[in-house]
């Protein structure tokens, strides 16, 4: 025997293999004396056929029920004709705040909770709280609607702590009614108590700020009056002289200087 014997056609190796199996085959012959079942040809089990039939039936009914009519523009499996979204401030007799809070809940969970958390407390050092926030609870919703529409960037002080992060713009994610609902929800949850916000107010601000691309900075928002502008007003909120003075006082000295220089030009 040499290293060659691992070659396939080496007669010595083949003979080796033959001898080894001959012994085994003798035993195998003994083993075959026992009756063996007809292996390899078990017929289909009746229960399996029944099971497959039940599955096919289920498949048919599930497909009919949850396919949204096989429409390309139907995204929810549960309805074939979607109900129109609830309109806040309509002619309904229900309390508008309760209705808006109900409609705003899923929107909050989808768009806001990932950062501001389900309990509205935010994440320390990262995302400012909404619960008890002076920005949320301002007398009017002018600033918070602007934040939701166009996002917010840079440092902002909330409840005495400073945060520096980026918030997304939601102007394309939610329509006026949805923004009104979610803002009303925020202003009336987590222990907050604020007035309801109407879709008209959102629409007005959306139109007034239509040209805006960048997110707001806190300083810019300080310059926006917290309330006013009125229902259905398409123009930017008209400010009283007192409000302007108040807003100017709130500005940091440096910003005020820049502003005055700009005006002077």
């Amino acid at each position: 025997m040499s290293a060659d014997s691992n070659r396939p056609l080496d007669p010595a190796a083949a003979l080796d293999r033959g001898e080894a199996t001959d012994v085994v085959q003798m035993h195998a012959a003994v083993q075959r004396e026992r009756p063996e079942p007809m292996e390899g040809s078990e017929p289909l089990n009746l229960w399996l056929v029944v099971f497959i039939a039940v599955l096919l039936f289920w498949a048919g009914s599930y497909l009919t029920q949850y396919s949204g009519g096989f429409r390309a523009d139907e995204f929810s499996e549960n309805q074939i004709n979607p109900a129109p979204p609830p309109v806040v401030g309509g002619s309904g007799g229900d309390d508008p705040v309760t209705k808006a809070v109900k409609a705003g809940t899923p929107l909050y969970v989808t768009y806001c909770a990932p950062c501001h958390q389900g309990d509205g407390n935010g994440v320390a050092g990262q995302f400012p709280p909404l619960a008890g926030s002076e920005w949320v609870l301002a007398e009017g919703p002018n600033r918070i609607i602007r934040i939701v529409l166009h996002g917010l960037g840079g440092p902002i002080t909330v409840k005495g702590s400073t945060y520096n992060n980026q918030m997304n713009a939601f102007r394309d994610s939610m329509d006026d009614v949805q923004i009104a609902n979610v803002v009303t929800y925020i202003r009336n949850s987590f222990g907050n108590k604020g007035s309801a916000v109407s879709a008209a107010e959102v629409a007005a601000i959306r139109t007034a700020t239509a040209a805006r691309v960048d997110p707001w900075s806190a300083a810019e928002l300080e310059g926006v009056a917290v309330s006013g502008g009125g229902e259905g007003a398409a123009a930017p909120a008209a400010l009283t002289v007192d409000q302007i003075k108040e807003a100017l006082k709130a500005l940091p000295a440096e910003d005020l200087k820049t502003l005055l220089q700009d005006v002077a030009k």
């Binding site: 498949a59 599930y62 497909l63 949850y66 396919s67 949204g68 009519g69 096989f70 429409r71 390309a72 523009d73 139907e74 995204f75 929810s76 499996e77």
Partner: peptide, 10 residues
């Protein structure tokens, strides 16, 4: 579209 998901679930 809902039907695409439904088909894959089935």
């Amino acid at each position: 579209p809902a039907w695409m998901i439904t088909v894959s679930v089935v």
